[in-house]
Amino acid sequence: MPSGQFQMQRSVLAGVQAVAARSLHAFARHTHDQFGIGVMRQGAQVSHSGRGQVTAGPGHVITVNPGEVHDGAPIGGAPRAWQMVYLDPHVVMDAAGHLAEGGSTAAAYEFVHPALDQPTLAHDVLRLYAHAIGNPAPLASDALLLRILVQAQGDGAPVLSADARVGVPASIRHAQALIDDAPAAVLSLADLAATSGLSRYQALRAFTRATGMTPHAYQIQRRLLLARQLIRRGMALADAAAASGFADQSHMTRLFARAYGVSPGHYASAARAA
C-alpha cells in the first residue's frame, strides 16, 4: 500500500468498520465517535491519548474510545501502517452487557490502555478485521468480539456501570451536551457558561481541563464527526460542509485533512468503495 493511502473496506458485520492505512501524516488532535482497536503492522508512532503520551511499534495493539482526544505522528521519518476496526458504541455496549454481572445491558465499557504489546490480542483483532471483510459465521464473530473486549481490559480493569464514569464534572457535561446536540449551531462562551452555571473564564478553564480541548476546538471536532457521518451517507461535500457548520467546503477540507490525514473527497471515495 503506498504511503498516504487509506482503505475503508466493505464490512459484513453490522456496526463495524474496517480501515487499513499506511501514512507519514502527523495527525492533529481529534476525536472519533466510535471505539477503535487495531494493530500496527509496520513502523512506529508516538501519540497523545486520554491516558498520556504513548508509543506503539509493529505488532502492538492500539485503541481509542469515543470522544477521546488523541493524535499521532510517525517515529523515525518512515511511514507506519495499521489495520483498525471501528465499532459503533451500541455494538460494544451490547457485548459489554454480557461481560457484566447478570448480563446487564446497562453496562458501559472503555479501553484502558491506548497501546498494548499483547500478541494474543493482536492476533484476535486481526481475525476480527478478517471477519469484517470476509464471510464469517455470526457465532464466531460474536465470540471473537467478546474475547477481544475481555483481553483489552488488561490487568483486571472492570467493566464500568453506566453511571460510574468519572472525570468530567456535571457542569462541563452540560456544556459538552450543548455542543453535541447541535454541532453546527453558533454558540458563544457565554452560552456554555450559562448552561454550566460557571463564569465564562471558569467554563473555559474547566472545559479545557476536562476534555483536553478548548470549547472551540471541541466544537470543530464535533462538526468534523458530523461531516464524516453525512459524507458516509452520500451527501455532497458542499452540502455536508454547510450542514456541519463550516464556513464553506474549503474550510471543512482544510480542517478535515489536518485531523484525518485525507481530504473529504478521498474519504467519500473510500466510503463509496466500501
Rank of each mutant, 00 (worst) to 15 (best):
S171N: 10
S171P: 00
L178V: 11
P183H: 04
V168W: 04
R222P: 05
G234R: 02
V159T: 13
Y218S: 08
Q249I: 05
R165Y: 09
Q151T: 08
A242T: 14
R165W: 12
A240C: 03
Y218N: 08
V168G: 09
R200P: 03
R200D: 11
A190E: 07
D191H: 09
A247W: 07
Q153T: 14
G154D: 04
L225C: 15
M213T: 07
S188T: 15
V159F: 06
V166M: 10
Y201C: 06
R165D: 12
Q229F: 08
A227M: 00
A157T: 14
I172F: 00
G156I: 04
L189D: 09
V168I: 15
L160P: 08
G156M: 03
T208Q: 09
L189W: 01
I172M: 02
R165K: 14
A185L: 04
G197R: 01
H216N: 11
L192V: 07
D155M: 04
D163T: 14
L189F: 02
L198W: 00
T211V: 08
R233H: 14
L178H: 09
A184C: 10
Q221V: 09
G156E: 01
L226D: 10
R205K: 13
A162D: 11
D191M: 04
A238Y: 06
I179H: 02
L226G: 10
T195P: 00
L230D: 06
A157P: 04
R222S: 13
Q153R: 15
A164C: 05
T214D: 09
A190H: 09
R205A: 12
A227S: 07
L237N: 01
D191L: 03
A210P: 02
Q219G: 12
G197W: 00
G234N: 06
A177K: 11
V166F: 07
L230H: 03
P183G: 10
R205G: 01
A193P: 01
G167L: 07
R222A: 15
G245P: 03
